[in-house]
Nucleic acid binder design. Structure first.
Length: 475
DNA sequence: ATGTAC
């Protein structure tokens, strides 16, 4: 990226000043090295988003930002409820993709002796890969119940425990879902895909806590050095993808109908208060429930695999947070509370201390912000800050962020070699697809530590713990 | 991300 187009406000804050047709500035949080790695298309896409009607304050880019479909991944934009727009491209193709992390009640010493067996057990028990299917088949009525009920539905079906629900955004069930506005094609694609990881950067990891940066917050989250955790990164699978496809197409027409100028067709949108805008929101909320139910079932499968080898294990959910959503939230804009639809695409909600939506257990310290690494690299747990509200509408990064295309990665790495190299470093990777492993090579991503350090330094969220992988089941 | 080009 050409940083001369930006005004540097501090070591970690850079502005793309608002010039017509932009209505608000673009604010990027990153260090100079991360910015230089970013494509200029990120700025172009930020300027396009900043030009949409009803946008407030600024369009934001997190330190892991890279260019995406219409709207940068690692982007945040909020629109007024009355005269703003909603965009399917602003949420992305994997609606409600997110991370959940569980404690296992075990330490590294418990895992080491049976690590190979555990990897094999998890790999056999948790479906992974493109088009992977599970043991659950949803008939139409059950599909609608799932889309309406989310993780709450999953728990009622016997996947997990009622106490899991308090540790999930929206208590595991997104209100306002409209399953009837999801196409039959989307439902058909999902019928056999519940409880599957999917592909790409999705995974299930067994991790050890190697460093704690903030003891007080770590205690509130229940993690300490040497603890073994399980993290799941997955989303709404074929259904979310189809919803995004269906509504992106529909929004091109809606934008035309309502006289919205589109700098890029991929940024198709509709007024929030229009029939089309409301239809997308209802369908998107149903897709959020699909992702929440999916991660809940995956949790159940992980528990079963652990119970078989380690009966002492007790997988307790720490938190589940999505990073591809558009949600109605109240934020302070110029000192006044306003109801806004906040698009976070590859950006994690990061509510600070005292937010009423947070579970009692950590309301005093702030929301856990779960940052996934890439195979063989660290993951982080951060916490939302009070200052994050004004800086980024309480949002932070979501992961390392790609630095290289999948195509480029395939030319540079071989999946089998990567698995062997990681194995030598004590990280067991199991994947149905060597090609998928090559596409997701750690070297194809930015340095997650640099990303997290930038989010920390910019005050978007603060570091709590560093996690290193032991086992990675890769989609 | 994705029945990785209906």
């Amino acid at each position: 990226m050409d940083t001369t187009r930006l005004t540097q406000k501090s070591a970690f804050e850079w502005w793309l000043e608002a010039s017509p047709p932009m209505r608000v500035p673009g604010i990027l949080y990153a260090n100079e090295a991360l910015l230089r790695e970013m494509d200029d298309k990120v700025l172009e896409q930020m300027a396009n988003v900043a030009s949409l009607p009803g946008i407030v304050q600024a369009v934001y880019a997190m330190p892991d930002a890279h260019w995406g479909y219409g709207f940068p991944i690692g982007g945040v934009a909020a629109f007024r409820e009355d005269d703003g727009v909603v965009s399917a491209g602003g949420v992305g193709f994997d609606i409600s993709c997110g991370v959940r992390t569980m404690h296992t009640g075990l330490t590294v010493e418990d895992i080491e002796p049976i690590k190979e067996d555990l990897a094999q057990g998890l790999f056999r028990h948790v479906p992974a890969g493109v088009g992977s299917i599970g043991k659950i088949h949803l008939e139409p009525a059950e599909m609608d119940a799932m889309l309406q009920g989310g993780a709450e539905w999953a728990v009622k079906q016997g996947y997990g425990r009622p106490e899991d629900l308090e540790r999930i955004e929206e208590h595991g069930r997104m209100e306002g879902a409209r399953p009837e506005l999801i196409s039959l094609q989307a439902k058909r694609r999902q019928a056999d895909e519940m409880g599957t990881l999917g592909s790409g950067n999705h995974y299930l990891e067994v991790q050890q806590v190697t460093e704690v940066f903030d003891t007080r917050v770590a205690e509130a989250f229940g993690v300490a050095v040497g603890d073994v955790l399980v993290s799941i990164h997955s989303g709404s699978r074929g259904l979310g993808h189809q919803v995004a496809t269906d509504y992106s197409r529909q929004m091109v027409e809606a934008a035309h109908k309502y006289g919205l100028e589109l700098a890029d067709l991929e940024l198709a949108c509709a007024p929030i208060q229009s029939e089309e805008g409301q239809a997308y929101l209802g369908a998107m909320r149903a897709a959020i429930n699909c992702a929440l139910a999916n991660r809940q079932i995956l949790t159940h499968l992980a528990r079963e695999a652990f119970a078989y080898l380690l009966p002492r294990a007790d997988l307790r959910l720490i938190y589940d947070v999505s990073h591809n959503t558009a949600k109605l939230e109240e934020h302070l804009i110029e000192g006044k509370p306003q109801r806004l639809y906040v698009h976070r695409k590859g950006a994690t909600r990061a509510f600070g201390p005292g937010h009423p939506a947070l579970p009692e257990a950590f309301r005093a310290v702030g929301q856990p912000v779960l940052i996934g690494g890439t195979m063989g690299t660290a993951s982080y747990i951060l916490v939302g800050t009070p200052e994050g509200e004004a800086r980024s509408l309480s949002s932070s990064c979501h992961g390392a962020g790609r630095a290289m295309s999948r195509h480029q990665a395939l030319k540079q790495w071989r999946g089998k070699e990567l698995v062997r190299e990681l194995g030598q470093r004590g990280i067991i990777v199991r994947s149905p697809s060597p090609r998928g492993v090559a596409e997701e090579a750690p070297g194809a991503y930015k340095d997650v530590t640099a990303v997290v350090d930038a989010a920390h330094a910019a005050g978007l969220s603060r570091k709590v713990a560093r996690l290193e992988p032991l086992i990675c089941i890769k989609g």
